[in-house]
């Protein structure tokens, strides 16, 4: 009796302490991962961005320094590409939202009585993920190329000038970005529209609001969390994307984005400090834009 009472008393006392140890143990891999693969690289990126060329070194050899001019130099040199990156990313995000919202609304609200149809369309949205992102973009390059039936057809319909082309134009790059990020926009929108309580829509129409006004004043605000996460998931990777804009894919010399500049500085001109400072600028600008956006849309609890 006495023993068992003692045992239970200690057991209940120790329970929370043991649980916190377990929690720490479980957190350890995650923390170690973040330290190794996020904090260390970030720190080394910051150091690299401030390096100066080695005095008697070869191309690509740099010494640690505090060369703040690296930042002003790249901003001066690549301001056009930086601005273009954000312009393309904003355009792609807007187009993806305009395309995805009706789609997500249809799957999440209208198709509710037909679960099979719902699943079928969701599969159609996700299925392209099973094929490599590069392959899909290359396929679009084929479709939009000068010899393709699409371009020939557009020319035959006089929608395109006889000497015009699509690949290498800003249109093709924004198109590619939009296409590649549509699932990232559609899925969060679907997730929030799927939970939309249609009784609020009925209440709206009961209170004299037309279907359009109900959409504007009830549906959109209630799906705001989905819009915000979809926009973030599209805008952030699109701003740093270098595949769609690269010359091997849909871009041309006039469509270079900041990702392409970083890539060529790192891998071709071996100007590591310039590439590193551009990466940090990209990161900082995205952070500022995203914070401002999230603050404005009133969904701070997402961050």
């Amino acid at each position: 009796m006495a023993f068992s009472a003692f045992a239970t008393a200690t057991a209940t006392e120790q329970a929370p302490r043991r649980a916190s140890k377990v929690a720490l143990l479980l957190l350890l891999p995650g923390i170690a991962y973040l330290m190794l693969f996020f904090l260390v690289p970030l720190f080394s990126l910051v150091i690299t961005s401030l390096q100066a060329p080695a005095e008697f070194g070869d191309i690509g050899e740099f010494d640690n320094a505090f060369r703040w001019e690296n930042y002003t130099t790249v901003i001066g040199q690549y301001s056009a590409q930086i601005l273009r990156s954000f312009l393309y990313a904003v355009l792609a995000t807007i187009f993806a939202l305009l395309f995805s919202y009706p789609l997500a609304y249809f799957i999440g609200v209208r198709a509710r009585p037909y679960p099979l149809l719902q699943k079928l369309i969701l599969v159609m949205v996700i299925a392209p993920f099973f094929i490599s992102f590069l392959l899909r973009t290359l396929a679009w390059k084929q479709i939009l190329s000068d010899e393709s039936p699409v371009v020939a057809g557009l020319k035959a319909l006089s929608l395109l000038a006889p000497d015009a082309f699509l690949t290498g134009t800003p249109f093709a790059v924004v198109f590619g970005l939009t296409y590649n990020f549509i699932p990232f926009m559609t899925l969060p929108l679907y997730a929030s529209l799927e939970r939309l309580d249609t009784r609020y829509l009925e209440a709206g129409s009961d209170l004299y609001s037309t279907p359009f006004t109900t959409f504007r004043t009830v549906t959109i605000p209630l799906s705001m969390p989905g819009i915000v996460s979809g926009v973030l998931l599209t805008f952030i990777p699109a701003a740093g994307d270098y595949v769609n804009a690269s010359r091997e894919f849909l871009g041309g010399t006039g469509t270079t984005m900041i990702g392409n500049v970083i890539e060529s500085n790192f891998l071709i001109s071996l100007n590591y400090p310039a590439a590193a400072s551009l990466s940090i600028i990209l990161m900082a600008v995205i952070l500022v834009l995203v914070t401002a956006y999230v603050k404005r849309s009133g969904t701070e609890d997402l961050l």
Binding site: R199, Y200, A203, S205
Partner: peptide, 21 residues
């Protein structure tokens, strides 16, 4: 006529108060 055109208002069982307002 449509619901929004009728001179009728409803107090719903679930109240259906707009949660974002």
């Amino acid at each position: 006529t449509k619901a929004y055109q009728r001179p009728v208002n409803t107090v719903f069982q679930s109240y259906a108060l707009f949660p974002h307002m």
